[in-house]
Amino acid sequence: MEKTRNDATNLQQLLGQIRESAGSSGQVSVNDILSGVGERSFGPVLLLAGLITLAPLIGDIPGVPTILGLIVLLTLGQLLFQRHSIWLPSWISQRSVPRDKLLKGLDWLQKPARFLDRWTGPRLVFLVDGPGLYVMATLCMLVAMAMPAMEVVPFSANGAGAALMAFGLAIVARDGLLAVVATSLTLLTGWFVITGLLG
């Protein structure tokens, strides 16, 4: 996937772009955020979906993992068909959050972002470019399709959130080693879900 001049190359830059997209109005829409992080926002969408799934009191709400799974499927399906920008239905793109809460959340994420950025960066780039990118997209879509089942297997959605977050950060930072870690999380989560359903 080619980089555009708007694409972030680490998590701190991504948070900065989201902050800039907040503007000065009282509400910030999903469309505002996507516009701020660049036209090819596939990595950031994965990263945000993973963070929301992992978030206490949010990711555990019934139905939330399934909705996030649908968003991931819709987003990555467009990547596989080589769209240059993400299209989302208006009922998603026009959803908004209060600007002050968004900024507080971004402030809270600064410290972990600095930590993660110290440990991520361009490595084994061939794993996150070209065919490698499409392999990651396919794995993420498999995770997304399994998310409804994860609602009945305790804690399995946390594994899915961690995998999506790792894949998203791997794309943003062009970090193939992190993509390998994300793949391992995906396989482990799949084993956990299958064991939980059969048990």
Rank of each mutant, 00 (worst) to 15 (best):
N158C: 12
G176N: 10
A182P: 01
G176A: 01
A157F: 11
R174A: 01
F167R: 04
L178W: 04
A163S: 14
A160S: 11
L187D: 14
A182R: 05
V180K: 01
F167C: 09
A179Q: 04
R174I: 04
A163E: 08
A179T: 03
L188S: 15
A157N: 05
L188T: 14
N158Y: 09
A170M: 02
A157R: 11
L187P: 13
V181E: 05
L177Q: 02
S184F: 14
G168F: 08
M165L: 08
A182Q: 03
V172N: 07
N158D: 14
A170N: 00
L177C: 12
T183D: 01
F155M: 11
L164R: 04
T183W: 03
T186W: 10
V180P: 00
G161M: 05
P154Q: 09
M165T: 13
A166W: 09
S184P: 09
R174N: 08
G159E: 07
G176H: 06
F155H: 14
F155A: 07
A170W: 01
S184L: 14
A173W: 00
T183P: 02
A170K: 07
L187W: 06
A163N: 12
L169E: 07
V172K: 05
N158T: 15
A173D: 03
G168V: 08
S156A: 14
V152L: 08
N158H: 12
G168N: 11
F155Y: 06
V180I: 07
L188Y: 10
F167M: 11
G168A: 09
L169P: 11
G176C: 06
A173T: 10
A173C: 06
T183V: 11
S184M: 14
E151C: 07
V172P: 12
D175E: 01
R174T: 15
L164N: 01
L187M: 13
G161R: 04
G161Q: 02
L188P: 10
T183L: 05
R174E: 07
A163L: 00
T183S: 00
P154F: 12
L185R: 05
A179V: 05
A157L: 15
V180R: 01
V172L: 13
V153R: 11
F167D: 12
L169A: 04
S156T: 04
S156F: 13
G168T: 12
A160R: 06
